[in-house]
Every structure is written in C-alpha cells, then in structure tokens.
Design a binder for these strands. Structure first.
Lengths: 344, 344
DNA sequence: CTGAAAGCGCTTACAG
DNA sequence: CTGAAAGCGCTTACAG
C-alpha cells in the first residue's frame, strides 16, 4: 500500500494557511511575503511535498511538453536532432516526448491523433517518406515546426539546411581540384532535400560549363551502403569513368570509395569522393572523406528554440518562420589531390 | 482566439445524456448499450470531440507515459535502445519522454526530481558515469528498470547482456583460429560492463592455458577511436606483438585494424581483430570486423516490456527481475584466417 | 443500462 | 499580503 502523496491542502492545514497562499508561495509569487514563503518552503521540504504537475498542467492547460515525430530514432541524423531538441528544451524546462513514424503515413496520422489528446504545447516533426499532404497537421491547435523533410507549398515553420547551395559548393570543390567528369549518387528525388542536392550538382556543372551526363547520375531509393555499392560499380563499367563523385550522403560515399579502391583506383588521385552529412564514419574510413556538415544538432536546437518561442508568444499572431542553417564543407583526404601526406 | 474544445459535458448536453454515460460510452464500457455507444460516438465524431487525456490522467492518476534517462541520445547504442523502448511502448499505448543525463550525476538527480513531479508511470534508466549511489532512485514511487549501466549491490530490475561470457566467447574465438598472443583494448574498469569484458578476456586465457600479459592489455577512458589508435600503436611497439586483439567496442577495433594495416600487417593473417557491439561501421570497414551483437534494440524492448508488466501488475508485489540477453558472435573477415575470398 | 454527485490537486480572478 | 470560492474535464463508486 503506497502512502498518499502530500498535497498543497495538507501543507495548508499544517500551517493554518489557505491552499491558495501555499500555491503562490511555492510558485514564488511576488505578492507573498518573504516570511511566509520561507515557512512554506521549509514545511514543504520537511513533509516531502512534491507538486503534482499533472494537476497543474490540467489546470493551466499547459504541459511544458513537446511532441517529436521522427522517422526513426536510430538513424544518426535524427538522434543528433533529437539530442539538440532535448538539450534546448531541457534548459527551457520543457520535456520531450518522442514518436517514430517508421516512415509510415498511417503511423504518422495516428501519432498526430495521439498528440492532440495528449495536449503537448507544440510539435516538432520530420515528415514520413509517405506523407504527401498535410491535412492532419492543419488540424492541430498547437504550433508545429518541421525540420529536414518539410512540407512544400504549405505555410509552416521550418528548419532546414541549404541543400541546393551546399551541393553547388561540394560540386564546385571537385571542379576546383581539377575534376572534369563528376558523377552523382542521388537520393530519391521525390524527397525535396535529395532533389535539391541533385539540382545543385547540375547547377554547378552548368555554371562551370561542364556537360550534364545522364550516365554519371545514379539514383538510389534510400541512399544505403548497399545501393551505393551498386551505383559505384555501374560507374566503374563506364567508358568514361568519373574522376570525381559527389554522393548525396556519407554511406554511399563510403561505397564509392571502397568500390573504386578495390578496383585499384587511387583516392583521390584517380577519383575524388565527397559525401554529405559528416557521419562519424566519414572521418574514420581511409582515406577520410570530404563531406558537408549537415548541422543536425543545431537543427534540433533551432527547431526547439523556434517552437518554444511560438508557444510563449504573447500575441496570438503565430507567424510561420523558416530557418535556413548554413552548412560547411569539411575538406578531408578524399579530395586532397595535391597533398600526399598521411595526416590530413 | 482559439475556440474552446468540445468536452464530455458538451456532448452530454447535446444528446441529453449524463456526462458519466458519455464517458463510459467513449471508453466502451460493457454496461452501456450498443445503441447509446453508437449515437455517442457518432456525435463525438460530428462535433470533433477529442478527449482531454491530461484530465483523464489527472483523474486516474495514470499517465501511460514512461520516463527514459539515457547518457546521450546520439550514441548509437542508446538510440537503438530508445528505438526498442519506443517500439514496444507504442504498441502498448505508452509514450516515451526522454532525458539526457550527459553522464552528469547532478543532471541525473535533477531529472529524477522532474520525473517525480511529472508522474510518469515508470522509468527506464542507464546510469550516468558519475553515479555511485542510488538513493535518488530509491525515493521513486514508480517502478524503475535499469539497462546497460545498472546499479550494483542494489535490488532493482535490470536488463543486461552477459558481458563476461561474451568476452570469453570472443577471446576463445581468437584462440580457436590459432591466436597465441591475444591483446585487449579495455574500457574504464570502473564501469561494470567493461570490467566484465576484461575479466572474461582473462578468464578465457587462463582456461586455455595462455598467460595473462599486462603489456597486452591497454586501458582507455571512453573507448574512443582516438584512444584506440594510441593503444594499438603501443601494441605495435612491443617486441612480442599480438596476433589477435579483442577490443571492448567497435570503434577501438577499427583503430586497431587501421593502425596495423598502415604498418603493413595483414588482417586477419598477421593480426585478427574482434570488436564489440556490432556498430554499423563494423560491417562497412575493410576487412569487415568480427564483433559481438550487443542486442541494443532488444534490450530496449525487454526493458519496456518488463517495466510495463510491473506497472500493470495487479498485486503490489513488485519483484525485481534481471533479464540477461544472450549475445551472438558475428564472425566476419577480420578473424577468418583460413578463408581468403573477398566475399565474407 | 443510466444518472447524480463527488472529487482528483492544483490555480486564479476577485475580494478584502 | 492572504483567503474563499470556483472550476479545469474527466472518472467512478453508489444508487436506482
């Protein structure tokens, strides 16, 4: 038999004060005298009073809790984003409830339904791969911030990186070290970020008077390591083999690097390779891979920051806002054509 | 101005029924007639009634919410565990609120304090590195399940793998392929799981009449890739170099592999390498690394399962229970001494 | 099968 | 500076 928890009322009885006074004293309300606050807090500690925040949330209609919808938690990018969200939210006294959509629209719909009843104060979401309309988000009565996979042609707050410009930067880096036949391993272009990386690659070529060759572009479904291997092998069979490969993520960059290495091509001398995301593996594999820092952790922080600002906005004009984080190109050995030392 | 949400009472007025009847109808209570349930649910849908689960939680003193304390979300092992927890909890209609201790005891203490007020129904925790006593967990009025880093000499529910036996298995695998001078890259032995891996390594040597050589054991603080490189370089300087290395995680296994490869040793011919955890990198790096599957995802599922069972246990005898998951040795190229094909 | 009533533990507008 | 009172939206033991 658990013993009943001490309540405000118990404290009030004990101290011959009104529950309202206790409540204000605990909340450090300015109207309460310092003397009263002192004895209340002392007694609270003595009796082991723990405020029931569910009661408080219920009464105030505010849970200080954020709902997060991610495709999968165990994808490194998303775990970094979540980490950034938690970090920021924790400091702002919010907590973070996490759901995985598993890239299923049905599941996303159900999660949104759950979040409506749970009365979170706001939601951060990365759309599932299957999501093609946003009606379910429209119904929500709390602010929503999207990150990474964000709705298109839809008024909403978003946090993203500049994929298009980043892809230009990456491709032009290959051009700058002398690559002439630059290949691209692309993600599914139905996903806007991968489309943007593809378009950036093309734009960079065009801008630098290089032709866009369709056999130098390979598409994958989900940019997996295994798919990357297949793409790289196809490049290997071409008459005009690429001398540089821009991959839409680091896994496929590792694939490309290993496939060409195994076929006795030197990296970066014969083929330079560049990835995207700055996954841990990119700086462990030999040679270390040049990549684009995708700012995952900062993305989480920015999303939490934006969301909490919108929640706490006094005036009801919740305006949508899009934050674009600037990426950095992290240059490592896989694109250092002129340098031949062992320490990149 | 947001419009007020529809409540049970609104439905009751609308239908000329008592709120209690509505409540029971929505909850599919057996005492309510099918006819009534039908009109209630129809009206609920029509008016867009969304139950306020905060009110319900408050009334029932049950939140169907689990608190999770992990050192860091962005460590792959923990993100897998969380994924397993979320997966199981979601199916059981619980949701999952996550906190990062950042391996700080102070932060862990504060999180436990927050979780007390938040009235989660149960807690899953991996202890911070700094945690050396468990008083703060004792105070909790809800069931707690620990995983991975669990309290010692303390009655509690735990989910762990058999680190000691796994280390024996790994070391004996090296012995079985003919290794005679087996080295170990160890984690901090203050952490029980790393101590167990070290002890398993020693036990396997002793059992097989091999000497324990102290210069073949290198200790790290946190088993980082960089530390692993240093350890491996020290092994490289020894007169009697190791012909097999058992590393307490996969990052240091990658270090060992790369350091020896760079020094022109062949893996596994000259040195066999075995890791621990089955991180994604272990099956990408060349040669692919033999490792111990640490069952992270299943650990999360088992922890959630155990916790929810304890929460829903009718009788109050909440007995502590320890679940030990069996690991598997995943044999890959880095220890295949006799096989010399390219496809492991 | 349905209803009336009490109450979960807080907070807050109002009054003094 | 403190108090009395109402009420947030549900659920449940009790009654019929």
């Amino acid at each position: 038999m658990k013993k009943r928890r001490i309540t405000l009322k118990d404290l009030a009885n004990e101290l011959n004060l009104a529950p309202s006074t206790i409540s204000r004293a605990i909340a450090n309300h300015p109207a309460i005298s310092e003397a009263t606050k002192k004895i209340v807090n002392q007694k609270a500690k003595e009796l082991g009073f723990i405020p029931n925040s569910i009661a408080s949330s219920f009464r105030k209609k505010k849970t200080t809790s954020l709902g997060i919808i991610v495709p999968r938690i165990d994808i490194h990018f998303h775990s970094l984003v979540i980490s950034g969200i938690e970090e920021f939210a924790y400091k702002a006294s919010y907590n973070v409830t996490i759901f995985q959509s598993k890239d299923s629209l049905d599941r996303e719909l159900e999660i949104v339904r759950i979040l409506q009843t749970k009365m979170v104060d706001g939601i951060i979401a990365c759309l599932s791969l299957e999501t093609d309309n946003y009606e379910h988000f429209k119904k929500l009565e709390v602010p929503v911030v999207f990150y990474d996979r964000v709705p298109e042609n839809y008024e909403a707050s978003k946090v993203v990186i500049n994929d298009f410009e980043s892809a230009i930067k990456a491709t032009e880096h290959l051009i700058s070290i002398g690559c002439k036949r630059i290949a691209h391993i692309a993600g599914n272009p139905a996903t806007s970020i991968f489309k943007a990386r593809l378009e950036g690659y093309k734009a960079a070529l065009t801008k630098n008077n290089l032709p866009i060759k369709h056999n130098l572009i390979e598409y994958t479904k989900e940019l997996s390591y295994e798919e990357g291997v297949k793409c790289a092998k196809r490049f290997l069979k071409l008459q005009g083999k690429p001398d540089g490969i821009f991959c839409a993520n680091d896994y496929t960059a590792v694939s490309a690097l290993q496939v060409f290495k195994k076929a006795n091509y030197e990296i970066p001398k014969d083929v330079a390779v560049i990835g995207f995301s700055n996954y841990p593996i990119s700086k462990i594999i030999e040679p270390k891979i040049t990549t684009v820092n995708d700012r995952a952790f900062e993305m989480g922080q920015a999303a939490a920051n934006l969301l909490i600002r919108q929640i706490e906005e006094k005036n009801e004009i919740i305006s949508s806002e899009t934050i674009v984080l600037e990426t950095q190109l992290i240059i490592r050995k896989s694109t250092k054509k002129n340098i031949h030392t062992n320490t990149p």
